[in-house]
Write a protein that binds this DNA or RNA. Structure first.
Length: 278
DNA sequence: CGATTCCCCTGATAGC
DNA sequence: TGCTATCAGGGGAATC
């Protein structure tokens, strides 16, 4: 499931390939996956590729594409001439939207579960969505310990897992990295935000930073459908500490990692080091 | 304001 | 073998 490190990886790889190229034409094979005036992007040139929260934002001459991978969305870049397969990933039954660039290269949007989308937005619509639906970026210099402290204290009754996954509060962190960051900080996912001490908040800030930096270094986690734009996997799976490691020993204290469900999401933690406060 | 539930969807897996 | 029930999960909407 692409979160901040995965989307950043996709954006970094994609901008090297498509900035400056013109969209010659496109195929929308599953109409519900493409929202807005998708046909209007034909003839428009890519001016930049950016990330905001878990969105891939492709800015064009006049409009913008906002692509959300949700659980299983993928973006594959196929160089000119490689029109069928790349790194074993095919243009196939899960390919719902295809952009053909003027140099013969292509961009495929695949999504097995069809939760994701490609949206065409005007600058105004894009700015409105980006500013109204998403909170601070955890990799922004403005995301200081003091800022996190203020955020946590303004939502004292929220459980930490819910607070950190809420995109309107902090943008880009999802299920995997919340579990990892809470483990780093030795904070229980169900502890209410108002019960954290300043020291614990500082440890959490460090944890978030460490985990996101490390995951980006390894180009993301490919336990499910996430793949790089080349079709290759990210390697963070081998470095994770708790996510989907229930039944296995905590890397620090060897206690068996536990799994619970919070807000319908699988949540993993060390029951010895991460104790719920009341 | 926050928690809960339902829904979108399909592959993997378990049970019979 | 193959059918059926269950589950995973980002995010938005509806409900409590």
């Amino acid at each position: 499931m692409p979160e901040l490190p995965e989307v950043t990886t996709i954006v970094n790889e994609l901008k090297e390939e498509i900035v400056g190229k013109t969209i010659d034409d496109l195929e929308v094979r599953l109409p519900k996956m493409a929202q807005g005036a998708i046909g209007g992007v034909q003839g428009q040139k890519v001016t930049s590729v950016e990330r905001r929260a878990k969105l891939i934002v492709i800015r064009l001459s006049t409009d913008n594409l906002a692509i959300h991978p949700k659980m299983t969305g993928q973006l594959f870049y196929l160089p000119p001439g490689k029109n069928e397969t790349i790194a074993g990933e095919k243009d196939g039954k899960y390919t719902h939207v295809v952009f053909n660039f003027s140099d013969g290269s292509r961009l495929l949007f695949n999504d097995l579960r069809q939760f994701g989308y490609v949206k065409v937005l005007s600058n105004e619509q894009l700015n409105k969505i980006l500013s109204e639906h998403y909170g601070i970026e955890p990799v922004d210099p403005a995301f200081t310990v003091e800022k996190l402290n203020g955020i946590i204290k303004s939502h004292p009754s929220m459980r930490m897992k819910a607070l950190l996954t809420d995109q309107t509060i902090i943008a880009g962190i999802g299920n995997i990295y919340v579990d990892e960051a809470l483990w780093e900080a030795k904070t229980h996912p169900l502890t209410k935000a108002g019960l954290l001490t300043d020291q614990e908040i500082a440890a959490l800030h460090t944890g978030i930073t460490i985990v996101l930096t490390d995951a980006l270094k390894y180009l993301g986690t490919s336990m499910d459908m996430y793949r790089r734009t080349t079709g290759e996997k990210g390697e963070y799976e081998q470095h994770r500490r708790v996510y989907r490691r229930d039944g296995q020993p905590c890397p620090r204290c060897k206690t068996t990692i536990k799994r619970i469900t919070v807000g319908g999401r699988g949540t993993h933690f060390c029951p010895k080091e991460q104790v719920q406060k009341h």
